[in-house]
Amino acid sequence: MRQGLCDGLSNEVITAVTTGAALSAWAVYLASGTLLVGAVTAFPLLAQGLQVPAAQWVDRWGRRRVAIIGFLVRGLAYLPLVFLPWVGVSLPAQRVTLICSALVSSIAGVLANTAWAAWMGEALPRRVRGRFYGVRYSLAMLGSGVATLCAGLTLDLSKQTIGLGPALSGVALAICVAGCVTTWSLLRQPEVRGAPAKAAAYSWSALIAPLYNPAARRYLVFQALFNAAIGTSGGFVAIHFALNLGLGYRVIAAQTLLGMFCRVATSAFWGRMVDRFGARPVLIASGVGICILPLIQASATPAASWPIWLEAVISGTA
């Protein structure tokens, strides 16, 4: 179980340094702006569409094997970026390399996470499962926060010293190392004895069954609207802060960290509210908070950037 905590920590480091401040730095370095940020933000989300076939593939190839190979590929997909600033390739070729790395990493991540969830679902005794996931989530948040802050500080310091290119190369190397640590940690965890539970066979009729359920259909429409709304502006906040407001990467990292801290601090409270009142009223109450975030983001200007801190508190709390 200690190894399970270790892989959670290292895996979250990869997520932390491939989004937010680091992604904005890549966009600035490759002089590409919002198109590249939009694509790289979209890949992990679009790859969620693979969840359905992923369950079948995991069942066929084995949970442990898919999880180990998947997490290794997820980290090492960024290996070409380590050499990118040192080899003399054109900017468009560098952009394509970043997009390919993000795409491969996203697909491997979905496969690995599906396999890991199925593996741990059987490996962990039921009585410790809740505590394990709780501790793992807290450690993952801690690792993510430290990694975000370190990446922000490194990128800011590098601007005055060695330049953004070598610093981004170092960040890419950190992603590869985190991928290898995750793999090493998973290799030390044994396969569950006995025959694995077969994944449910998906049929077309089973997949579209929620569309015939009015409550599920309404939730699907809500989810489509809500996720389209989040995707429209959510991924571009960091690049707006960096490019338009002129904020340093460490400030962006600290803002992300504040939001993360508020999320950890209030998650138990919202859990209690869901138990007491149901999920729907909590969804609406926190939805109102999430709704006003883009207005706060838009109200920040280069002269008065203080709304970003308010945005972090509300986004973490809601």
Partner: peptide
Amino acid sequence: TSYLALFAASAGLCNGLAAMTAGAVT
């Protein structure tokens, strides 16, 4: 399983497509 798979897939696709479209427009 099939409900959760459809919910997760639709959320990811809508979010991802919106991010790509917004990136292209801006």
